[in-house]
Amino acid sequence: MHRRFIRDLLERIRNRNSKIYETIIHGIFLLLGFISVGCVLLITVYLIISGMPAIREIGLFQFLFGKEWASTAAEPKYGILPFILTSVYGTAGAILIGVPIGFFSAVYLSKIAGKRVRSVIEAAVNLLAGIPSVVYGLVGMRVLVPAIREIFNVPDGASLFAAIIVLAIMILPNIIKVSVTALDAVPKEYEDASLALGATPTETFFKVSVPAAKSGIAAAVVLGVGRAIGEAMAVMMVAGNVANMPSLFESVRFLTTAVASEMAYSSPGSLQRDALFSIALILFLFIMMINAALNFFLKRDRVN
């Protein structure tokens, strides 16, 4: 009934004046086109509205630089410096391990590997990208955590170190894929010229191809940073989840896991829950900065 009515109406409008009809269609698509802008605005506004009250109550300085988080204590303390530092260290560690491996793999795949090897490895990398983060967490929990306990002789393997390794593996596919795309786009003439001047292939790849693709590779690293800082579930399963100041072999809590671990049992409207929203707001600010950096590198790549 409904649909038929609308169709009849549209038909009548079309018959009378096709211009109005086209304008309506245009309007509908305009609306659809701006959905993503609307979503971004909605998310930003909601996070700011729900994140500000706790920050105002606790005090921005206290909140950001307080070294202690004890949200359920008799005298609750809401300092998120441990989470911020853990997120920064964890991400830095993952980048330190993941980027060299990903970078060398990317150069190999783009410049040296034969067609068949390349397609097999690329399929493997795509698979790595598609594995759900909880599966990483599960394998980390069962393999990595006990291994760390054994090898480093610590009471509990669930630690910042375990999280760093899991994150390094998780960002690997992003880094490889984006770097390969950037390296593939380097004009062949550059390399030919370098080879003709007597440089060896390896020299050519690292002194000509890589510098020519540096914006794309930088974008790959930034993308990796974004993924590492935003990952929650895998980290939650291997990092132990105690609100300590970061230390390599101690149980730690990231910004993401701080939100996720207390959300389920904090009561709505309490300062504890409001503080969790504030943590999300801080995380969101980090991500927005990373996005801006990513956009900068990608745009520079396009201009070049």
Partner: peptide, 11 residues
């Protein structure tokens, strides 16, 4: 596409 899924969960 850059926003982490925890934040999507909250929103």
């Amino acid at each position: 596409s850059g926003i982490p899924s925890v934040i999507y969960g909250l929103v």
